[in-house]
Design a protein around this nucleic acid. Structure first.
Ligand SMILES: [Mn+2]
Ligand SMILES: [Mn+2]
Ligand SMILES: [Zn+2]
Ligand SMILES: [Zn+2]
Lengths: 142, 142
DNA sequence: ATCTACATTATAATAATTCTAAACTATTGA
DNA sequence: TCAATAGTTTAGAATTATTATAATGTAGAT
């Protein structure tokens, strides 16, 4: 979703009623220059910082999954102990910093197009994504 | 771990006492032709099928994590709702069947070596893995 | 055989997520 | 305009996966 777009319209387009909770979550998630990655816990904190009333935890979960189902959010599996979500919903690659547990987007140009030589009968490829795990290089000062 | 190797020896090599629970888990995990993927739940079932006495759930978790720490198992993050483990501990690529939730290894030869053009200062690359999500192709019979 | 550090176990605790059912609200159309 | 209705929110309970606890058991050393 683009920054400062008409969130009410965008919600209606996919059949979601524009409630005040959903509109607030749109503002928190999409009114910014760049896409970003978050956990549910991050999001709850962000919402409570930018809002007087709280949104109940169940609604945060419901809404995140509703947005995911409608293609406005994407779930990223990195750490099996926690769910990460991404406001960049296109297929793209990531760096994962194993020290800080930070997810970093990888520009399209940083990795050549990947060619899959094998195909699985009766199945089509939905996405091809690379995960590059990085960690601090302590061998540098040798 | 190779098939039919001396598990007692292999456990001692990494400083793990060869208890009967650990030896049994080695047999279940490594006495087979091919490496495979499993969840803790799968493993508990496999153990109880091949054994009279049970191994307590806490021990299964402890042992899986001990094996992982010692490099005899690898954790795979695909679905953030569940942990998958792999007896193939080398860095390798996967297909994930979104219909059946099945993980399939991808041969090294099926994907060309991936070149990462960007590097993150002070960080070294630990692994580069590709996940190819596939699903049934219902457009075939057009 | 005895000792001791490590391992196993049943069970309790925790954490993330989902369910439930009652209260609330956006939309419809009389 | 304003009830009727279907969809939404909510607090709290329930569920699930996983980890912690602490008592008991055991492998390996002496
Ligand atoms: Mn989800
Ligand atoms: Mn683990
Ligand atoms: Zn991303
Ligand atoms: Zn594998």
């Amino acid at each position: 979703m683009p920054k400062n777009c008409n969130f009410i319209e965008k919600l209606r387009e996919v059949g979601l009623r524009p409630t005040k909770q959903r509109i607030k979550m749109c503002e928190v998630l999409y009114n910014r220059e760049k896409t970003f990655h978050f956990t549910i816990n991050d999001l709850v904190k962000m919402i409570s910082e930018k809002m007087n009333e709280k949104i109940s935890l169940a609604t945060v979960y419901n809404t995140v999954h509703a947005f995911e189902k409608k293609g406005y959010l994407k779930e990223i599996s990195i750490d099996s102990h926690k769910s990460y979500f991404d406001t960049n919903t296109s297929a793209h690659h990531h760096f994962f910093d194993e020290d800080t547990h930070e997810l970093i987007d990888c520009d399209e140009s940083d990795i050549d197009k990947i060619n899959i030589k094998k195909n699985i009968t009766g199945k089509k490829i939905n996405s091809v994504e690379v995960l590059v795990r990085v960690a601090s290089d302590n061998q540098t000062q040798k």
